[in-house]
Nucleic acid binder design. Sequence first.
DNA 1: TTGACTATTGCGAATGCGTTGCATTTACAT
DNA 2: ATGTAAATGCAACGCATTCGCAATAGTCAA
Lengths: 139, 139
Amino acid sequence: MCADTTDFAQALRDAGLRATQQRTVLLSILMESVDHPNADELYARAKTIDDSVSLATVYRTLSALEEAGLIRRLNFENEPARFEITPVAEHDHLVDIDSGEVIELSSDEITRLRQELVEGMGYEILSQHTLIRARKKPG
Amino acid sequence: MCADTTDFAQALRDAGLRATQQRTVLLSILMESVDHPNADELYARAKTIDDSVSLATVYRTLSALEEAGLIRRLNFENEPARFEITPVAEHDHLVDIDSGEVIELSSDEITRLRQELVEGMGYEILSQHTLIRARKKPG
DNA sequence: TTGACTATTGCGAATGCGTTGCATTTACAT
DNA sequence: ATGTAAATGCAACGCATTCGCAATAGTCAA
């Protein structure tokens, strides 16, 4: 009994969502994406599998998956939102402003430091995300 | 001789921008704002001083001031961009998701840690910003 | 000062990302 | 199988922001 079978439909039901064809397709695409696609890109990829999906459903599904905690919405600057499967370990993002490449930064120590700071102020953190814009150093 | 006279027009020229009436008004409003207004709010405040300003000019001015480095654009989640005078000391923002209040977090130590991490990867940081969503702890 | 040159403005229309109303379809419990 | 609520596709909409264009206003040189 392998618990990690890629049974996307079951994953949806486990999260309390109805396992529709469209949601299953979108979840599977997100699962195998190594980049951080936006809604339009997901729409394009989904249509190659099931060309009946609509953009409205892509947006509605992304909101549903986010609310269920299955995915995370990334709000970068001056561009449409991107999405990733909810990471097991917290991480931040660095955007290479020349290439547009998005790099994930693990940041255990920094996350913990910030948590202590904010909790000392009487708050509990719901989410935290750092966005770094950077450029490759010459040499 | 006080170098800090609030000569907004001169500040604009020093930054390489033409000192128009509209830009001067907007810069002065931002200078005396303690909150983090968005374009609409700035438009409303500006109209009480010079009711001829248009929303388009507010947006164009904000882009110009940002590009000149005089102000910083804050991209929060699911809301229009907010703006603040470029801070002398780096800081991040905590949004109280119940009240909507925005709290500035100074973060010298964390900023420095992150800088070391990223530079070790061969990048130079152009900007970094952390957004924390949090809720006041009971008690 | 005056003029001339160009950046900036106001207006309204256009864009882009995302959401919504509604009639139809579909998942899933009975 | 069947009923019912939830999800879908489509097209219309909403909001934040940008753009084209003719008119205006800074700035700089004379």
